[in-house]
Amino acid sequence: MLIDWFTVGAQALNFLILVWLLKRFLYQPVLNAISVREQRIGMQLADAASKQAAATKERDEFERNNREFDAQRAALLAQASEQARAEHQRLLEQAHKDAEALRLRLADLLRSEQQLLSAEVARRTRDQVLAIARKVLADLATASLEDSMARVFVERIRALSGADRKLLTSATEAAAGALVVRSAFELPAQQRTAIEQALSEIGASVSRLNYETVPGLISGLELHASGRKLAWSVADYLGALEKSVGDILGSASTPAAAAPASGASQ
């Protein structure tokens, strides 16, 4: 007999015991370990995923901030550049303005200096010339010169134009107007007569003719009537000379004053 039923029963029991033993010592511990490990791995993966998501979010935030900072920096830089350029332009214009004002002031100073100088030169020249002339004329003041001057004066009276004659005539006719002949020296009677004769010839009344001696008149004669004056004196010529010298000095100083102006405008 191949089958021993006691052995069959014993083996079945043995097998069931083995099932229990292996379930107790093998399957449950191993499966539990696997489950726990899978759970841990799952948690770690989830944790890693959440960390990665957080990292990605932070990176995006960081990049966004970076972009904003860059944009702000560029804007600030552009603004600063613009301000610097405007400031530069303003300072440049200010400097130009100041330089122009300075140049103008310098030109004014120069001009006034020149004017002062020219006035001084003219004054001294005139003074010198006049001094010389006075000296010369005083030295030469003789009867013949005075005579010549009186003769010239008479000729002038006679050479007056019609309108001037009328003015002189109307002046002598006015009650208030008295004719005054001023001279640097005492006129002799002969010359007085010649003057009166000439005045009478042009129709002026000589009834209220007075004679005055004014030493300031340099070798000359003046006829005053109601604020009008007919004169001949060396002083007139000297005045003309002074004006001529002044003109010459003025024309000489104009190019000199214009040169710095053109230099400063560059």
Binding site: T7, A10, Q11, N14, I17, L18, L21, L22, F25, L26, P29, V30, A33, V36, R37, R40
Partner: peptide, 26 residues
């Protein structure tokens, strides 16, 4: 038959117990 079965049971059970006694979860 029974004796060798017990032997096998012993090997399997004791071997499993020895190994699973120090199971690592990491």
């Amino acid at each position: 038959t029974i004796a060798f079965t017990w032997g096998l049971m012993l090997i399997l059970a004791v071997g499993s117990k020895l190994i699973t006694r120090t199971l690592s979860l990491g």
